[in-house]
Design a protein around this nucleic acid. Structure first.
Length: 575
DNA sequence: GCCGTTTTCGGCCCGACTGTTTTCAGTCG
């Protein structure tokens, strides 16, 4: 396997951009964009499928695109794209990313001023040449100057959802207190539970919009207001996040909430569905012949479209609409389903709090069991436990369990996968643990073949229960390791080993697509906080959200099981 | 370029806002 879905999706996105710059058929362009999204959302690699016939079964992939996928899988290249690249200067594509520049204006820049890239545009702006072009005025010029000046530092990271929450929740509370406001929801990717959130889509239910928009202007965390109309406004918060606020009347609130929750592809699919039913769907409601037939609530809206309730976490147009129609949506796991947490650190390794404090925190978070999984000693792991300290911790756990009657402490360790795939503790030591969690903590940049072989070798060891944060990614900091997840999942399945959904907000690893793939393959998931201090058990919520995005049900998760069943399952994994 | 219990041709999601216009195109979400 060489070509990944992401590369195929990127090729289609580039095709779409280049065709747009050339002034191609907008619907053809849209077809490429949609295909890119479909490919991105697949839970398995296209290169592992049999070929064009199977590709064509995917929505939005017809004979032509199936052929192009086949070409990419076979050769890693796409001739049609290479040809377009020869026709369109590479620098023009960057211009599309500038605010206010779409394909039409980029084309005008090219044909009218011979502009080929950002540097050309800068020069043209400096010389005041843009004014000659139709469609370019002083306001747009000013916007472009600002954007080009900040282009160097523009790589602003998408904030983690937990960071976005620190700004979203106070804003929600503030708007809720505005007179006349009946409802406030943070919609968009925030509501869908994505790991990172680009901007805040805030929906306000109120009979009139004026009071809300006035209140927004006065909000202390607002840095600037960049646009404001009669029903919506856009601003930038002090942390640099963009916030889009929209005010709708109560009878439209459900339709608007659905619309602003998205995703974009989910919305488009739903609007097509409405059309097929002879209706029109907008943020104001579902209309049949100009008459509103639904709109006040999402439930009512979905019902009118012949669909069961679709949880926001599923709205990515990855088959949830078809499943809702068939009544085949999964009943998603909830936080209350969790009985325990199988990945927790104490001050014995790199955690902040004592064993007793962590167990007490687990108890207060409603858990019935908790596995203490401090790092095993290994080069590069600070304060890791060796066999002797692990044995002493085991004694302390035994003593603690004597005193506790409503929670059970399990003995575990987080064992490093060494560079060659061996483990940092010998089998004899692992054999005495209740839970052995293994993970990669270094050598992240190996080739896919090497990295996969390394993890597969570790998974072959006996007494291994859970592969923790499998991809090793750190959001915004470190890309996921190159791993053949289909083989990892197959190995985990064959062996009865679980894959972790790590709830640390900057990990959320497995990601949603791999959760789905693991779940579909029948691999049990371990939803873990990976707590390094008492308050971090709250990160179980993040793990649950991520698991829900991957369609996980209660029965797909190891630590929803009562202790006795958990022990049986862990025992089975030791073979 | 895709797609079809309306269609194999003729459609393709919908609306707000801005800026550049002098009635609306382009961009954005």
């Amino acid at each position: 396997m060489s070509v990944h879905n992401e590369e195929i999706a990127a090729a289609f996105d580039e095709m779409a951009d280049l065709l747009a710059i050339q002034g191609g058929n907008p619907f053809r362009i849209r077809a490429y964009q949609q295909a890119a999204q479909v490919v991105r959302g697949l839970p398995h690699e296209l290169s592992g499928m049999t070929g064009p016939d199977e590709y064509q079964e995917l929505p939005g992939i017809g004979a032509d695109l199936a052929g192009k996928i086949a070409e990419l899988v076979r050769t890693g290249e796409l001739r049609a794209l290479a040809q377009l690249r020869r026709q369109v200067p590479a620098g023009l594509r960057e211009l599309l990313a500038l605010p206010g520049l779409g394909p039409v204006r980029v084309r005008a820049l090219r044909s009218g001023l011979r502009i080929r890239n950002g540097a050309d545009l800068k020069r043209a702006l400096a010389a005041g040449r843009l004014a000659r072009l139709r469609g370019f005025g002083p306001a747009l010029e000013a916007r472009l100057r600002v954007a080009l000046a900040g282009a160097g530092e523009r790589a602003a990271k998408r904030p983690l959802r937990t960071v976005a929450a620190q700004f979203a929740e106070p804003l929600r509370a503030y708007l809720k207190s505005v007179p006349g406001v009946s409802e406030v929801e943070i919609a968009g990717s925030y509501r869908r539970g994505r790991d990172t959130v680009g901007d805040l889509d805030v929906l306000v239910g109120a009979r009139t919009a004026a009071a809300t928009l006035k209140a927004l202007r006065a909000y202390s965390d607002l840095r600037t207001l960049t646009a404001a109309g009669t029903t919506k406004a856009t601003g930038v918060l002090r942390n640099g996040m963009q916030v889009d606020i929209r005010v709708v009347a109560p009878q439209s609130f459900g339709a608007a909430l659905h619309y602003f929750t998205g995703s974009r592809d989910h919305n488009i699919h739903m609007r097509r569905r409405a059309q097929e039913l002879g209706c029109k769907l907008s943020e104001y409601g579902l209309f049949r012949g100009g008459k509103r037939v639904a709109g006040a609530s999402e439930v009512q809206l979905l019902e009118a479209l012949g669909l069961r309730w679709i949880a926001p976490e599923l709205r990515e147009d990855r088959g949830e609409i078809e499943a809702a129609e068939a009544g085949a949506l999964p009943e998603l796991i909830e936080r209350a389903d969790l009985e325990g947490d199988l990945h927790v650190h104490t001050d014995a390794s790199d955690g902040r709090d004592t064993l007793a404090a962590m167990v007490e925190a687990a108890r207060q978070h409603g858990l019935r069991y908790v596995a203490i999984t401090d790092h095993a000693q290994h080069l590069g792991i600070v304060h890791g436990l060796d066999a002797a300290r692990l044995a002493r911790q085991a004694d302390a756990i035994d003593a603690l369990n004597e005193q506790l009657d409503d929670i059970v402490v399990l003995k575990g360790a987080e064992v490093d996968i060494l560079e060659d795939g061996r483990l940092a503790l010998p089998d004899a030591v692992l054999a005495r643990l209740d839970v052995a969690v293994i993970a990669i903590h270094g050598h992240f940049d190996k080739s896919e073949a090497e990295q996969t072989a390394r993890v597969l070798r570790a998974l072959e060891r006996p007494y291994v229960s859970i592969l923790a944060h499998p991809s090793g990614r750190l959001l915004g900091e470190r890309a996921p390791c190159a791993l053949d997840f289909e083989r990892i999942i197959a190995a985990a399945r064959a062996r009865g080993c679980c894959l972790e959904v790590n709830g640390q907000p900057n990990r959320l690893d497995l990601d949603d697509l791999h959760v789905k793939a693991a779940r579909d393959a029948g691999v049990l998931l371990s939803l873990a906080s990976d707590s390094h201090s008492a308050e971090q058990f709250a990160y179980l919520d993040c793990a649950v959200l991520q698991a829900r995005r991957g369609w996980a049900r209660r029965q797909d998760v190891l630590n929803t099981r009562p202790l006795a069943e958990l022990r049986t399952l862990l025992g089975a994994a030791r073979r």
